[in-house]
Structure formats: C-alpha cells, structure tokens
Amino acid sequence: MILDILGQLDPALVGGVLMAVLALDNTLLTGLVIPADASIIVAGAALTSPAEIALVAAAGTAGCFLGASGGWLLGRRYGARVRHSRAGRWIGEHRWARAERIATGSGGGPALAAAHFLPVVNALTPILAGTLGMPYRSFIRWALAGGAAWVTTYLTLGSLAADFMRDNQHLTVPLAACAALLAVGLAVVTRRTRASRNARAASGNSGGSGEPGPAGSGAAEISGPGGSPEPESASRPPR
C-alpha cells in the first residue's frame, strides 16, 4: 500500500524534498503544476510522530523562506514583465488581481501570511510584493510566519489522515470515492463561478461601450405659436 511505502521513508529525505519543492514554488511557480498544498499533505503522510513532523516542518519553513525571498527578488528585478509574460497570461489575470489585492489590501501583514492557505495565489504574492516595492524585512517576516503555520498545519493533517487510513483500510475505497466526488463538485462550482464572472464582466463592458444619444434625438417637433406643435407641412416653404 502507498501509505506503508511512505511510512518507511527517512524523515530527513522527506524534509529535503519538501524544502526543494517549496523553494521552487515561489520562484519558478512550480506550484501551478504540482500544488504545494498536496505536496505538504503527502509529506505529512510519511510522518508518524510529532518529532518527525517538527523536523520536516522546519525544513519546509526553510523552503518557504527561500522561495519567498526568490519570488520577492524576481518581482523586484523584473517587475510587471513577469505578470504580462506568456506564463503570466497563462496563470490568468484574475489570479494576479486577487494576489495584488492581498498584497496591497488593508489586511496588511496578517493577510499576507494567510495567503499561504490560498492555492496558486500563495505562489504569486511574493512576486507582487517585490514588484510593488514592499520592504523586504516587513514582507519576509510575515511570509515566514505564514509559511511556518501553513507547513505545520498541512503536515499534521496529512499525518493524522494517514494514521486513520492505516487503521481503517476498509474505508479506503468509500473515502476515496467521496473525495473524488468532492473534487469534481468543487471543479464544477469553480468553473460555473468563473463563467458567471466573465459573463458579467463582458456584459458590463458591452453595456458601457455604447454612448447614449442626445436627449430628444428622435424626430424633432417644431412648435408653433403657444407651444403647440405644427405639422411638418407647415415648415415647408411654399412652391
């Protein structure tokens, strides 16, 4: 069973791999292909004790530090060119806009730390922080705090879930089926929400593109004496 194989891995090896994955997540944006959240949960499934969780959490936090620093430097050096590159367009403007709202919003540092729990967005916020000129010390302090909480939480959840599955292997198939249905449902809801948002944006753009004509642009009426409209024939000169 996969869980048994994971349980036999050396925690130091698991920590080293996780550190590399998280370091690349914010610099090369590898989290768009291999979600960092899933990587942390899988790493947690290989851990069987609090000591192992603490060891791998330290390595994962170091990876977050390296990745956040690299992403900040990338944004500082290349600025908006990353966002408007081919890869940036593939990511989607709505994700960049969401990350920008977090980086510049009123939530400040706590919102920046909490962004680690938002898939894809967590990989974009360091780049935007560097692009927007956020001071490195202020940024890295909150990024490191959020990364430590993110890694520790997901490692613990992965370890607990793996222990539960090892003790209740007869529930593997039903739980896997429920997880698959939940994933499909979330994908459908996300796609419909995105389509609805795009439709509203398109209707708003089309509605605002037309300029209303001047008032009374229809057939003008010629008023005669006393304000009463005269027939059209009265305005024609006699032959």
Results as ranks from 00 to 15, higher is better:
residue 239 R to C: 02
residue 59 A to Y: 09
residue 5 I to T: 12
residue 213 G to Y: 12
residue 131 T to F: 04
residue 188 V to G: 06
residue 150 W to H: 12
residue 171 L to H: 04
residue 216 G to M: 06
residue 230 E to Y: 07
residue 54 A to H: 01
residue 185 G to T: 11
residue 107 G to E: 10
residue 178 C to S: 12
residue 10 D to K: 04
residue 117 F to L: 11
residue 164 F to N: 09
residue 116 H to S: 14
residue 123 A to K: 01
residue 66 L to W: 00
residue 132 L to V: 10
residue 5 I to W: 13
residue 200 R to I: 07
residue 224 G to P: 01
residue 51 A to W: 13
residue 36 A to S: 15
residue 118 L to Y: 00
residue 171 L to V: 03
residue 202 A to E: 06
residue 138 S to T: 01
residue 120 V to G: 06
residue 126 P to R: 06
residue 120 V to L: 15
residue 51 A to V: 15
residue 71 G to R: 02
residue 191 R to G: 09
residue 218 G to C: 05
residue 155 L to E: 03
residue 97 A to L: 14
residue 230 E to R: 15
residue 11 P to L: 09
residue 15 G to C: 06
residue 210 G to T: 13
residue 197 R to A: 10
residue 38 A to L: 14
residue 5 I to V: 08
residue 6 L to G: 14
residue 204 G to K: 03
residue 144 L to H: 02
residue 13 L to K: 02
residue 146 G to T: 02
residue 59 A to K: 00
residue 222 I to R: 14
residue 6 L to C: 10
residue 131 T to P: 01
residue 231 P to S: 14
residue 223 S to D: 05
residue 191 R to M: 06
residue 26 N to A: 15
residue 79 G to C: 09
residue 31 G to Q: 04
residue 12 A to W: 14
residue 164 F to Q: 07
residue 165 M to D: 03
residue 171 L to R: 07
residue 74 L to S: 12
residue 152 T to C: 04
residue 73 L to K: 01
residue 16 G to D: 05
residue 63 G to Y: 00
residue 145 A to L: 15
residue 140 I to H: 13
residue 86 R to D: 07
residue 43 A to K: 07
residue 85 S to D: 13
residue 150 W to A: 06
residue 48 T to I: 11
residue 2 I to W: 11
residue 77 R to E: 04
residue 106 S to A: 15
residue 149 A to L: 15
residue 148 A to L: 15
residue 70 G to K: 03
residue 218 G to K: 00
residue 209 S to C: 02
residue 29 L to V: 13
residue 82 V to S: 01
residue 62 A to D: 00
residue 192 R to N: 05
residue 8 Q to A: 14
residue 120 V to Q: 01
residue 44 G to S: 11
residue 120 V to D: 01
residue 198 N to W: 04
residue 169 Q to E: 07
residue 154 Y to R: 02
residue 119 P to S: 06
residue 69 S to E: 11
residue 171 L to T: 05
residue 183 A to I: 06
residue 99 A to E: 06
residue 70 G to T: 04
residue 124 L to T: 04
residue 216 G to C: 09
residue 24 L to S: 11
residue 204 G to A: 08
residue 28 L to H: 08
residue 115 A to V: 12
residue 17 V to S: 10
residue 239 R to G: 09
residue 21 V to I: 15
residue 178 C to N: 03
residue 166 R to Q: 12
residue 105 G to Q: 11
residue 150 W to T: 02
residue 20 A to K: 00
residue 36 A to F: 07
residue 126 P to T: 12
residue 222 I to A: 09
residue 92 G to R: 14
residue 126 P to F: 05
residue 157 L to K: 00
